[in-house]
Every structure is written in structure tokens, then in C-alpha cells.
């Protein structure tokens, strides 16, 4: 891990702990897509920090280019986290926004994905976008691991500037698989349900 990455991990652990709980699977070198609820800018680093050191090197968070693509944020995203930047805005309609993700998976590396696409303000995640489904179709051998990040919407909610120290537990669930002939909507609902089930807040 780079020094800038180590510094970032140290800082995030000091403020939110990011204690991992491997409930449905164990940390291992298998290729995976970790997908989680998204409520705060700390989410990405917290999930990344919860992974063991050796997995951080081969696991790339997916970040939005419109937010993380400039200045210091760009430095943090690309240098410290080695994130994959994607275009949420999609100015060029002909290009596939998932292309950089597909490239990373084809290389054999793992991804951290926030399928809501944007930060929510509630404890429960909003509806999932379809990227996860398309990736699952193209890479059936990659494990899809649901992850729940607790409390981070309290530490740095949308609109706040200073993160409040609040303990965050990162719960890793049992891997999902896209069933043969499973349609997009039911799969995305099932994936979202798997994240909610880890939160203990059944709704």
C-alpha cells in the first residue's frame, strides 16, 4: 500500500473505526465485487480500510468522475485509493460507462461498488442502479459480496464538512450469484435486500 493510502486508512480508522465483521464469508483472494449502501463520503475509504492489507492492493473502489475527478479529491481517489473513475453524467452517449469497471475485472482485480449511485440520507439504502446486474452477467465467476456500512450517515451526512467520530461496523454478508434467467429488477431487489438484512433493520 502507498504511504498516502496508509495515511488515509489510519485517519479513517481513528475517526470511524471501520471494524470488519465477516459474517457470510471470509476475507480471501477470490475475485469479488463488494457492493454496499452509500450515505457518506467516508464510505469508500471505510470499506477499503476494513479489508485486510493484502486485499486492498487488488481491490479498487468505483468513484464518480464528476466528484472525484479534480484536484485533491482526484489525488486521493487515483493515487491513494487507486479507484476506478466512472462517468455518471455520460456526456458521450455511445460509450459504455461500465467500460473501466469491465477492464478492471478482466484484469482479475476486485471492485467496491455503491449501486445506489449517489449518497442517501437514510439508514436504509435507496433503489439499486443496474450496473451491478450487467457486471454479474458478464462476469458470472466473480463473487458478489453484500456489505453493510453502519452509522456513516451519522458521521458525515450529506452537506456536513467535518466528520464526527462515530464507530462504524463493516458487515460482510454471504456472496450472491445471478441465477440463470434471473431478470434485472428481481436481482437488484435481492441484492439490496441482502445489504438491508445485514443492517438488522428489516423494512
Amino acid at each position: 500500500m502507498r504511504p498516502s493510502g496508509a495515511l488515509l486508512v489510519g485517519l479513517v480508522k481513528l475517526i470511524v473505526g471501520a471494524y470488519p465483521r465477516w459474517i457470510g464469508c471470509q476475507p480471501c483472494a477470490r475475485q469479488r465485487i463488494y457492493f454496499a449502501n452509500h450515505s457518506s463520503h467516508i464510505d469508500t475509504v471505510a470499506l477499503w480500510a476494513a479489508l485486510p492489507l493484502e486485499l486492498r492492493d487488488v481491490t479498487h473502489p468505483v468513484a464518480a468522475r464528476d466528484y472525484w475527478g479534480h484536484g485533491l479529491r482526484r489525488y486521493i481517489a487515483t493515487k491513494a485509493l487507486r479507484a476506478v473513475l466512472i462517468d455518471r453524467a455520460r456526456e458521450d452517449k455511445s460509450s459504455n460507462p461500465l467500460a473501466p469497471l469491465i477492464e478492471t475485472l478482466a484484469r482479475g482485480d476486485s471492485l467496491i461498488l455503491f449501486p445506489e449511485g449517489t449518497r442517501g440520507s437514510e439508514a436504509l439504502p435507496g433503489p439499486f442502479k443496474s450496473g451491478l446486474y450487467h457486471l454479474a452477467q458478464q462476469f458470472p465467476e466473480v463473487e458478489l459480496v453484500p456489505v453493510h456500512l453502519e452509522n456513516l450517515h451519522r458521521s458525515l451526512p450529506k452537506g456536513a464538512f467535518v466528520p464526527i467520530p462515530i464507530t462504524c461496523t463493516v458487515r460482510f454478508g454471504a456472496p450472491l450469484r445471478l441465477e440463470p434467467a434471473e431478470a434485472k429488477e428481481p436481482f437488484l431487489a435481492r441484492a439490496r435486500g441482502a445489504v438491508i438484512a445485514l443492517s438488522g433493520l428489516h423494512a
Partner: peptide, 11 residues
């Protein structure tokens, strides 16, 4: 940090 984590505070 532990005390505040368990305490329901609002935004």
C-alpha cells in the same frame, strides 16, 4: 466515540 455511537443523536 463509543458513547456517542450508542447514543441516538440527530443531524
Amino acid at each position: 466515540r463509543e458513547f456517542i455511537s450508542l447514543t441516538p443523536t440527530s443531524s
